[in-house]
């Protein structure tokens, strides 16, 4: 099957920067996102993750290389407005600052904004808006003013606004960065539910405990892919991630540090509390047993 999004040797350069002219934001990047996948993109600030996201739905156009959406090449040729809308309809995006992406003064009007732009008939919009608000659990706030909602609620409204456009994929560009733990949980639960129901999710984040929920993790550094794979495997490269300015989940960090300090060989991985505790306790008991034996 065709991947939903495919990058082939994509380069993107920000120009007009006095300090570092012509720096690559994205360099020779090739990647594939399959339909229904949940991909997390990690990387420190300036590693090119947001640029990658903006290339995916044509907010930016690459300097070289090709991008395909569902097998259709969207680079290297003249595109009509309809072509662009077709891509943006398929690939929605939720941004970091909840305040700067809500257009309307009433929640449901904002959710309707996308479908309205697409020229969807009125009754159909009504249906989509109600469904979208149900999915994110904000139906009861349909007539509220967005500026009075909490950060997590605002982001859920923004998500509903994208869902109402019936996309195949939603990109979350650090959408949890400005939220408190509760808001983050709300948004993450929504994201996971969407993914379970078949939505392709691309999650750009700084939080490792969010990234571990993904099917695949892509770590970016200096505009290139630095590491990628199953989160369990990626997070085992503890030192390599530290080098890229990232952290690993605390369970992994604990086992890594214990292994290093005592020369143990507990298999590294991403564990829940109980598994991590069981592995550590077993080892402690084993070591103590030997000591007693001596």
């Amino acid at each position: 099957m065709e991947p939903l999004i495919k990058f082939e040797n994509v380069c993107y350069t920000y120009t007009g920067n006095d300090a570092e002219p012509g720096m690559f934001a994205v360099h020779d990047l090739s990647l594939e996102i399959k339909e229904g996948e949940f991909v997390a993109i990690l990387g420190h600030n300036g590693s090119g993750k947001s640029t990658t996201a903006k290339l995916m739905n044509m907010i930016l156009a690459p300097n070289s290389g090709d991008i395909y959406v569902e097998g259709n090449k969207i680079t290297g040729r003249e595109l009509t407005d309809e072509d662009v809308f077709e891509v943006r309809k398929k690939i929605g995006m939720v941004f970091q600052n909840p305040d700067n992406q809500i257009v309307a003064t009433i929640v449901e009007e904002d959710v309707a904004f996308g479908p309205e732009n697409l020229g969807v008939p009125s009754q159909e919009i009504r249906k989509r808006v109600d469904e979208a608000l149900d999915i994110v659990g904000m139906r009861e706030y349909a007539r509220h003013a967005p500026h009075k909602l909490s950060g997590g609620q605002k982001q859920r409204v923004a998500i509903a606004g994208v869902i109402a456009m019936k996309p195949k994929c939603i990109i979350f560009d650090e959408s949890t960065a400005m939220l408190d733990p509760m808001g983050r949980k709300e948004v993450m639960n929504t994201i996971r539910r969407l993914n379970k129901e078949g939505m392709t999710v691309i999650l750009i984040t700084h939080y490792m405990n969010e990234a571990v929920l993904a099917d695949r993790v892509i770590v970016m550094k200096s505009g290139e892919i630095y590491e990628q794979g199953d989160p369990k495997d990626v997070f085992c490269n503890v030192e390599r991630l530290w080098e890229a300015g990232l952290e690993v989940p605390q369970t992994t960090e604990l086992i890594f540090k214990l292994n290093k300090k005592f020369g143990w060989e507990i298999p590294l991985g991403v564990y829940d509390f109980d598994t991590c505790a069981r592995l550590v306790t077993e080892k402690i008991k084993e070591v103590r047993g030997e000591n007693v034996g001596n």
């Binding site: 604990l254 509390f273 109980d274 550590v280 008991k285």
Partner: peptide, 14 residues
């Protein structure tokens, strides 16, 4: 997170 891990370790008898 580590709080949860330590709690589980205690529960398992260490």
């Amino acid at each position: 997170e580590i709080y949860g891990v330590v709690k589980a370790i205690r529960k398992q008898g260490a």
